[in-house]
Design a protein around this nucleic acid. Structure first.
Length: 539
RNA sequence: GCAGCUGUAGCUCAGUUGGUUAGAGCGCCGGUCUGUGGAACCGGAGGUCGGUGGUUCGAGCCCACCCAGCUGUACCA
């Protein structure tokens, strides 16, 4: 009989998804605790919604398609209704608020954290399942709510260990953009398509540079402009004058032009307080949000829609400044576009400003690690009236990926349990008794459950589990009422010099004997010596 | 979706102008060592060479198509 090899099933993980080990879980848990602490400090309260929503609650275009799997994972219920895995936490929040509108005290301030899913092509820092941590204020029309969200975003990133200057919260306002677009004749519903193209072009500013944006606003752009090869992106088809207008808006802060605030009268005082003040000709100037806002006023203040947005930005800048958040943390930046569909006013984006490199030394683009904005229309979709709302979302998974790529995510060695080795199979009950004693003292412990015939294997196991120590009791010890405790951490150090195997075995480094009654006390000494937490000290 | 690159052991990769039975390092398992982790030495398991078809006396290598992965780009409500 020919032996047919059973066809092995290939074990493989779908792309864009990831298993998480103990170290990563511990790191994520610490991040979540930190974020939660900041959010709660600001007065937000917890809320959780399910992973699954009706598809039409998430977006407006889906239900009429055959397979609404563009971007979202969807499937049909028994009753043929389309369900989807949530792709963010904002739409479910809007549904929750609308559904429980009467019972919710407004302004409603809530936070929530959880997995979201996107059916898109994954990449570095882009996953198909990732975690977000949101905070939203629903029912507050004031821009103070927006300003507060920005400040909280800054506080959160710093609480996570990102130094001031290594991140920035960029702020813009959709109304300013809308006004500019109206001014160049792209207002109205029939220009929605071109408007979108313009917004996307602006969004790519830091990726393709000023010339790239110029091409995208005009005829279009090749993936490799020099060789005119690769993918071609069709442009918005604007003329020279229109392009110049848009470019002047975008570069206002982000690129070549940095508007400066004239502080001639204030410079002396600023210097006295230790601020750096640049000299430009006769007047004295400093980079500031107020400078950007003044510049916007001068250039676009005569467009009604823009003016409204500019004044909102001015107020956010003032509020932030008054609270001590200056341009190094919260920055008015007209190139920020974001969330093209549902944002109605201020939009925010959290960016890391330091460069992260991959293992080959090439710079990695992680994109924004958080974002948000005002979405006055989202809750209103479920009701007849507009409900003002603003919120912010941290991309926990992406931020964790960025931090660990940078080596900033503390990869503290996770110690395993104390292992009680099995020397005599017929004493299993007694060994488990030792384990129980340790557990009752709050010490992680387990008896070796593998094949106990070779004692060496049990040590190898304990070594791999990163156990701080093992407990040994053979017939000699049992007769004497004692146990051997072997400190594996200390032993590894002590044995580093030994090269001869026989000597290695004989020396039994870092091993000592104690009475069974002293077991807990002595193990605690070993754990304490190495800083291994136990009992209440464990997280 | 579009473009480029890459598919050989669990991982990283060799593999001559096409030539018997496809290799190495690491890892894994076992032994030296059934009362002691590491090192060392010895041994072992593990491959439809991504798939299908073609050219050839002969294909891991050449050709066509397909599939998968990576990178970029587009899309991302």
């Amino acid at each position: 009989m020919a032996k047919d090899k059973p066809t092995k099933l290939k074990a493989r993980l779908p792309r864009g998804l990831a298993d998480r080990g103990p170290a990563e879980l511990a790191g994520t848990r610490a991040m979540l605790d930190t974020i939660r602490r900041v959010y709660e400090l600001y007065g937000f309260e917890a809320l959780e919604t399910p992973f699954i929503e009706y598809t039409d609650a998430l977006g407006k275009f889906l239900p009429d398609q055959d397979r609404p799997n563009e971007g979202v994972f969807s499937f049909q219920d028994d009753d043929d209704q389309w369900l989807s895995l949530r792709y963010d936490l904002t739409a479910p929040l809007a549904r929750h608020v609308a559904e429980n509108f009467q019972d919710i005290a407004k302004p409603f301030r809530s936070y929530r954290q959880g997995w979201v899913f996107r059916n898109e092509k994954p990449g570095p820092g882009r996953f198909r399942q990732f975690m977000q941590f949101d905070a939203d204020t629903v029912g507050a029309p004031t821009v103070a709510a927006d300003a507060e969200i920005c400040m909280m975003a800054a506080d959160t990133l710093e609480a996570l260990g990102i130094a001031r200057g290594d991140y920035v919260i960029k702020v813009n306002n959709r109304k300013v953009l809308d006004g500019v677009l109206e001014a160049i004749g792209l207002g109205g519903d029939d220009n929605a398509g071109r408007r979108l193209t313009v917004l996307r072009a602006i969004d790519k500013f830091d990726k393709v540079g000023i010339e790239g944006v110029r091409d995208l606003l005009g005829e279009g752009r090749w993936e490799n402009p020099a060789a005119k090869s690769g993918d071609f992106t069709k442009g918005a088809g604007l003329d020279e004058y229109e392009i110049d207008t848009v470019i002047s808006f975008v570069t206002l802060q982000s690129g070549d032009v940095t508007p400066l605030e004239d502080i001639t009268g204030l410079a002396a005082g600023a210097r006295a307080n230790g601020h750096e003040v640049n000299n430009y000709g006769s007047g004295q100037f400093v980079e500031s949000n107020k400078g950007v806002v003044n510049h916007l006023r001068a250039m676009f203040g005569n467009y009604a829609t823009s003016a409204e947005g500019i004044e909102e930005l001015a107020e956010i800048a003032d509020l932030a400044e008054a609270a001590g958040y200056s341009r190094d943390r919260i920055r008015i930046d007209p190139s920020v576009v974001r969330g093209l569909e549902y944002y109605t006013g201020p939009v925010f984006e959290a960016e890391l400003t330091f460069e992260v490199k991959d293992e080959k030394g090439r710079p990695v683009r992680f994109g924004s690690v958080g974002g948000g904005g005002r979405y006055d229309g989202l809750v209103g979709r479920f009701r007849g009236e507009a409900v003002p709302a603003t919120g912010f979302s941290i991309g926990v998974s992406r931020l964790a990926a960025a931090l660990s790529a940078l080596g900033k995510l503390k990869a503290a060695t996770e110690y395993g349990p104390v292992v009680v080795v099995v020397m005599d199979r017929d004493q299993t009950g007694h060994y488990m008794g030792l384990v129980k004693t340790l557990r009752e003292a709050g010490i992680r412990a387990e008896m070796y459950l593998g094949n106990p015939k070779n004692l060496g294997n049990q040590f190898k196991y304990a070594d791999r589990r990163n156990s701080p120590c093992v407990v040994i009791q053979g017939s000699d010890e049992r007769a004497a009422g004692t146990v051997q405790i072997k400190d594996l951490i200390e032993g590894a150090k002590a044995a580093a010099a030994i090269t001869d195997n026989a000597e290695w075995r004989e020396s039994r480094p870092a091993q000592f004997e104690c009475s069974e009654a002293e077991l807990v006390e002595k193990v605690k000494e070993v754990l304490g010596h190495h800083g291994v937490p136990y009992g209440a000290a464990r997280g």
